[in-house]
Design a protein around this nucleic acid. Structure first.
Length: 555
RNA sequence: GCGCUGUUAGCUCAAUUGGAUAGAGCGUUGGUCUACGGAACCAAAGGCUGGGGAUUCGAGCUCCUCACGGCGCACCA
């Protein structure tokens, strides 16, 4: 942004703002450019002529070293010595904080993500919300926001009555202790396969018992809940995911009545076919169901209560829901109802929607056993990483640790590399591929950089007057782009921008690395290239850590 | 039927939000190889950006329309 501001200021014209300064397609043309087409109307001259005139009146200085006019574009080249110095000193000074900011100071962002269901194991479909939310959490923290990570547990509903019913009929304590969450899930699956009308009604009764505080039913439920949370915690630890609140659906049991009262009071609630709804027809949406005809609350009721509770508790600046696009309509309805209730903060609610995961032979189905468990994906990636390390670098210490960093990186990176809205067809071939645009490529680049620095082993001093060659400039420019990339990722709720940034920087460094000797270079070139290497290592590490991915020194 | 969303190289995806010659990875073909780590690098081939229209000096991006896929549309979450 610095250069854009500088150029715009220097041009000193009302109709030119820093946002008008663009980047040329390649750096031979220049480092920045001003398209003069819009100015053509203002000045009633051809863009070519305007560019030419601007070029002639522009005074070269110590920041901008060259100006040229090409086909209606005014192209600028910046002084590379200054550029390199600014970027490299800044990275050295800011270290792990390079790319961070304080724009979020004093603002709170709530992020609802992962939101596991009690008694259901993690499958590959839960990966997106978990790593997307986890990364947004880190990104906003990095930008100075106060962040509240919320795991909105799925801990309410008749399925828990079914589960208790199944457990009482077929289960026993040792089996569940031994089999953990998969044993619980098996009971639930069996219920859905075998239950008759009698069991269904028993299940409804058990659910009522939970609701009414029955001791036995609640003890069982709490036990299932604990087993689930212990189980997911292991996965969260591996994925570098943290939460500040586990207030789930049940937490809002006693917070829905006030919402219903408020809706009535504000005359928004309507009777329809025996149920209570908020009519959204004039907004082109189906009605939002608040109470079933039997008086029971619904999904939307709880989400309304949760939103209001979060606003009251955290006074958020924004409240994000990292949930698949399947629920687009649901969130549109809930947000609209909040607006109709007169909550001016309804505009701060954001549904961060992402694409669906399916398998190569179609949609996943727990009932049919067509499911890929996340823990299996993780262990296969780690095993593969171990095998490759063992093959290429058998004498390495901490091979297990490194394999974890590499394998888990691949799992996370694979889920974050593309635009979140794209659907994903899961395939083991893809997650287990460690070539090309992957976290492994980025980590490998870091390992190389580390290796160079370790061989040199002395303190590195950045030379002040070194004129970088074109390949070095490419790396410098890529390095400079991290702060803006982090801001963009936050603004668009899109961690993939950071993942792509990391690959881009790694590619540029690798190109430089192949063509330019570092340790055998002479004098200033050597010192500069070592500084560059240090900066790349630091910056790649910062980028990956925003995704929850670590960087091994060797691999 | 209505709404949301997607469609870019053989495959998986980018494209600085309307700018210059649409770029990467995988795959294919050919090359770099006694090294600062080959999990790398270079080169070639591969495109009417799903079709058609409109707006604009300029459209992969905006608008209209059609086609194909995904998701959703009242008592599940």
């Amino acid at each position: 942004m610095y250069y854009r501001n500088y150029i715009a200021k220097k041009l000193d014209m009302e109709s030119i703002t820093p946002a008008d300064i663009v980047l040329p397609p390649n750096s031979e043309m220049g480092d920045f450019a001003l398209p003069c087409f819009k100015l053509a109307k203002v000045f009633r001259k051809s863009p070519v002529q305007i560019a030419e005139e601007l070029k002639n009146s522009f005074v070269i200085d110590e920041v901008i070293s060259e100006v040229s006019a090409v086909n209606g574009y005014l192209n600028f080249k910046v002084n590379k010595v200054g550029l390199a110095n600014n970027v490299l000193t800044r990275i050295a000074r800011e270290g792990d904080g390079y790319g961070s900011s304080d724009i979020g100071k004093g603002k709170t962002i709530c992020i609802d993500y992962s939101s596991v269901n009690i008694a259901k194991p993690f499958h590959i479909g839960h990966l997106s919300t978990t790593v997307l939310g986890g990364s947004l959490y880190k990104i906003y923290k990095f930008l100075g926001y106060n962040v509240v990570g919320i795991n909105h547990l799925g801990d309410y509903g008749t399925q828990f009555g079914k589960l208790i019913c199944a457990y009482k009929k077929w289960g026993n304590r040792e089996e569940v202790e031994r089999g953990g969450i998969h044993a619980i899930n098996a009971l639930y699956v069996r219920f859905n396969e075998e239950a008759d009308e009698k069991m269904e009604s028993e299940a409804r009764e058990y659910f009522r018992l939970i609701e009414n505080g029955d001791k036995e039913a609640n003890n069982l439920f709490e036990w299932f809940k604990k087993l689930t949370l212990d189980y997911v915690q292991i996965i969260y630890d591996k994925l570098n995911i943290t939460f500040d609140s586990y207030a789930g659906e049940r937490f809002y049991t006693d917070k829905m009545q006030p919402v219903i009262d408020e809706l009535k009071e504000k005359n928004i609630l309507k009777e329809s076919e025996g149920a209570s709804i908020v009519d959204l027809e004039s907004y082109g949406m189906p009605p939002c169901l608040i109470l079933r005809s039997d008086g029971a609350t619904l999904y939307a009721t709880r989400d309304l209560a949760a939103a209001i509770y979060r606003k009251n508790t955290y006074d958020f600046y924004k409240c994000l829901y990292v949930v698949a696009y399947q629920q687009n309509l649901h969130f549109k309805q809930v947000f609209k109802v909040l607006e109709l209730m007169g909550k001016e903060w309804a505009k701060d609610m954001v549904h961060v929607a992402y694409g669906m995961v399916s398998l190569e032979d179609g949609a996943m189905s727990t009932r049919k056993g067509k499911v890929v468990w996340l823990e299996d994906v993780i262990s296969r990636c780690v095993e593969k990483a171990y095998a490759v390390i063992d093959d290429k670098n058998p004498d390495l210490e901490n091979k297990e640790e490194i394999a974890k960093t590499v394998g888990l990186g691949a799992v996370i990176f694979g889920a974050l590399y593309n635009n979140k809205i794209k659907d994903i067809v899961f395939s083991y071939d893809k997650v287990l591929s460690f070539d090309g645009e992957t976290s492994v490529y980025v980590q490998y680049t870091c390992a190389r950089a580390n290796s160079v620095l370790a061989k040199y082993g002395e303190k590195i001093e950045l030379p002040e007057a070194y004129e970088p060659n074109p390949q070095e400039v490419e790396v410098i420019k890529a390095l400079a782009a991290l702060p803006q990339t982090v801001l963009d990722a936050a603004e668009k709720y899109e961690p993939s921008l950071i993942a792509r940034y990391a690959v881009d920087l790694a590619q540029k460094y690798n190109k430089f690395y192949i063509d330019c000797r570092i340790l055998t270079a002479e004098g200033e070139a050597k010192a500069f290239r070592l500084s560059l290497t240090e900066a790349v290592l630091q910056t790649l590490g910062n980028a990956l850590s925003l995704l929850g991915i670590g960087v091994p020194e060797k691999m």
